[in-house]
């Protein structure tokens, strides 16, 4: 009896396009764990999955849209957020989740991120931050720590990285949290909260890229996870301005922001059609 319930079917298989497994992520890559946390959060959130859509940009994390068995869109580099904005405003009944990487969301797509947060479009944005461009082989990103070695910063990164929670908060996000993929339970919980949050919510999930980043910075994937374990400072409610990622001082994790604000659509409807808050016409 108990043995027959064990099978080659994983409990998350119902949310995965199993005909596309194995996925492209390398051994030791953290995207899969963030993705797995995301799927568990989706399931536990109790939202209507038929009305849920996942939008990704380009890059390793951007491939997540291709593995989730829901309506899912793999769009252009950096443009997942405006694509998702169009979906949400055209059909506000949909739960719209953006799952993408740091390069996609914060370099090429940085402008879209800050404006979607400013407008408080009701989206959930999950950013897998692996500090590099993984898909193209490990180039410097807007999140690469100073002095870190990448293929385009062979002697060390001369630039400073973004503090993503601070950027999200300053831009107007109503929910901001950061976890690492090692803190998978907290991460799952945060993603669940973010999905259920009405407003622009942002989760940064730190994850190793052993092939692109780890190799050049002398970090095996397990070492990266141990750094996450040792250097983690869990500080819910911390000031995002102080959440710079500094592996020497420690990395501040937790839920930083959780506030209420009317969404873009709430405000639009109240100003432009105060008498009826009917949904958008189904023109098609």
């Amino acid at each position: 009896m108990k043995n027959s319930s064990l099978s080659n079917k994983h409990p998350l298989d119902e949310l995965i396009r199993t005909d596309r497994i194995p996925h492209i992520w390398c051994p030791g890559c953290g995207v899969g764990t963030v993705f797995s946390s995301f799927l568990i959060a989706l399931r536990e959130s109790g939202i209507d999955l038929k009305n849920t859509v996942v939008v990704s940009g380009i890059g390793c994390s951007g491939r997540a849209a291709g593995y989730v068995k829901l309506d899912s869109f793999h769009t252009t580099h950096g443009r997942a957020i405006p694509f998702a904005t169009g979906i949400k405003l055209a059909n506000p009944d949909l739960n719209v989740i953006v799952f993408s990487g740091d390069g996609d969301l914060f370099a090429i797509g940085g402008n879209h991120f800050i404006h979607a947060a400013r407008r408080n479009v009701d989206l959930t944005v999950i950013c897998v931050n692996n500090f590099t461009y993984g898909m193209t082989g490990g180039q410097a990103a807007a999140t690469t720590p100073s002095m870190a070695k990448t293929t385009t910063t062979p002697k060390g990164n001369s630039e400073s990285p973004f503090n993503l929670p601070h950027l999200a908060y300053a831009s107007g996000a109503t929910y901001v949290a950061r976890w690492t993929m090692l803190h998978a339970r907290d991460l799952t919980e945060a993603i669940k909260e973010a999905i259920l949050k009405r407003g622009f919510s942002f989760i940064e999930a730190l994850a190793p890229c052993p092939t692109g980043y780890g190799r050049r910075n002398k970090e095996q994937p397990l070492q990266t996870l141990k750094i996450y374990q040792e250097k983690a400072i869990i500080k819910n409610g911390a000031n995002p301005a102080e959440a710079d990622i500094d592996f020497n001082k420690g990395i501040i994790l937790g839920k930083f922001i959780d506030i209420k604000k009317p969404t873009w659509l709430d405000t639009y409807n109240s100003i432009y059609r105060p008498q009826d808050n009917s949904d958008i016409i189904d023109a098609a």
């Binding site: 939008v55 869109f73 769009t75 252009t76 950096g78 443009r79 957020i81 405006p82 694509f83 998702a84 904005t85 169009g86 979906i87 949400k88 405003l89 055209a90 059909n91 949909l94 402008n111 879209h112 404006h115 958008i280 016409i281 189904d282 023109a283 098609a284």
Partner: peptide
């Protein structure tokens, strides 16, 4: 860029 991306998304949500 955002304008056209949003238009594509809205179309998939079933709206012209």
């Amino acid at each position: 860029i955002a304008a056209i991306a949003s238009v594509l998304g809205a179309s998939w949500a079933g709206v012209k």
